[in-house]
Design a binder for these strands. Structure first.
Ligand SMILES: [Zn+2]
Ligand SMILES: [Zn+2]
Ligand SMILES: [Zn+2]
Ligand SMILES: [Zn+2]
Lengths: 143, 143
DNA sequence: TTTGACTTGTTATGATGTAACATGAATAAG
DNA sequence: CTTATTCATGTTACATCATAACAAGTCAAA
């Protein structure tokens, strides 16, 4: 995953520096949405800078290059689980276990774009995030 | 609009008190997304409390009763333009003029729910917000 | 008219995010 | 190899968004 990321970045003339790589690793390790300050704590504990811009810059870089996503509902970030595929996915967030799933959102996005076009509105970027129960937690909740 | 709101609230055993009414009026007057602190400034200038909870409580109340919406992308609130209809709308936000449109999002929501169901995920609440250009700004931008 | 629920206000603090500037590493030009 | 330029990292300081906890006032029902 990291090698793949490094290659994709090099192709764009961008570098996966130590902070950036470590930030991506941290997101990948937990595979869930993390707040910027949570990431920052980890980075600081490992000898990187301990001021907010350190984390925000690395996260912003990863988002710009399609290696991570920002979740508006949670004020949080998460590693991209399918880098290179559909980079405008819909997110499913489990309210019980915080699990995060990433769906190719083309059908949803199309429906939205069409709906908007009826009002003459041009959609440029769409945020599609759902809160609910993942399969595991739904099973657990059943009586 | 206000009378209608008052009636709907009374039916639910809730009251449209002065702060709440003024907050709703402020949102309705500008018809765009406003930050909580912007609302607070207006309230404070008119003799209401000047501490954040004053605005946040009124806004939360309005959202709970379907008279306003919260926009995740903007950390902001806006009066509901169609109270009582589809209360899980999609939002279109113009990046030029901040205009806000509210669309009945049933088709989009259905597409999302179906997509999620394929992964066994149960959608409970969905955030669907699009950034783009409203018709007026799109016209203005054309060469 | 007392009781209890609700509303409004406050203080204080927490959480999230960015501007501006100084220093240091990597690359490119000479 | 040396210098110039760009990019990256770190800092301080501040801006913005949001809530917890408590005190005082209001309202309507018992
Ligand atoms: Zn992705
Ligand atoms: Zn779950
Ligand atoms: Zn509405
Ligand atoms: Zn516009």
């Amino acid at each position: 995953m990291l090698d793949q990321a490094r290659d994709r970045l090099a192709a764009n003339g961008a570098r996966l520096t130590p902070v950036r790589q470590r930030t991506l690793e941290i997101l990948l390790e937990s595979h869930r949405a993390m707040g910027a300050y949570e990431v920052l704590d980890r980075l600081a504990a490992e000898g990187f800078g301990r001021q907010p811009p350190v984390a925000y810059r690395a996260l912003e870089f990863l988002v710009e290059h399609g290696l991570a996503h920002r979740l508006q509902r949670l004020n949080a970030f998460a590693a991209c689980l399918h880098p290179g595929h559909d980079h405008a996915p819909a997110f499913l967030i489990c309210r019980e276990c915080d699990m995060l799933a990433e769906l190719p959102a083309a059908p949803v996005r199309d429906a939205l774009t069409e709906l908007a076009a009826e009002s003459g509105f041009q959609v440029e970027r769409a945020t599609i995030e759902a809160l609910g129960l993942c399969p595991a937690c739904a099973d657990a909740a059943r009586p």
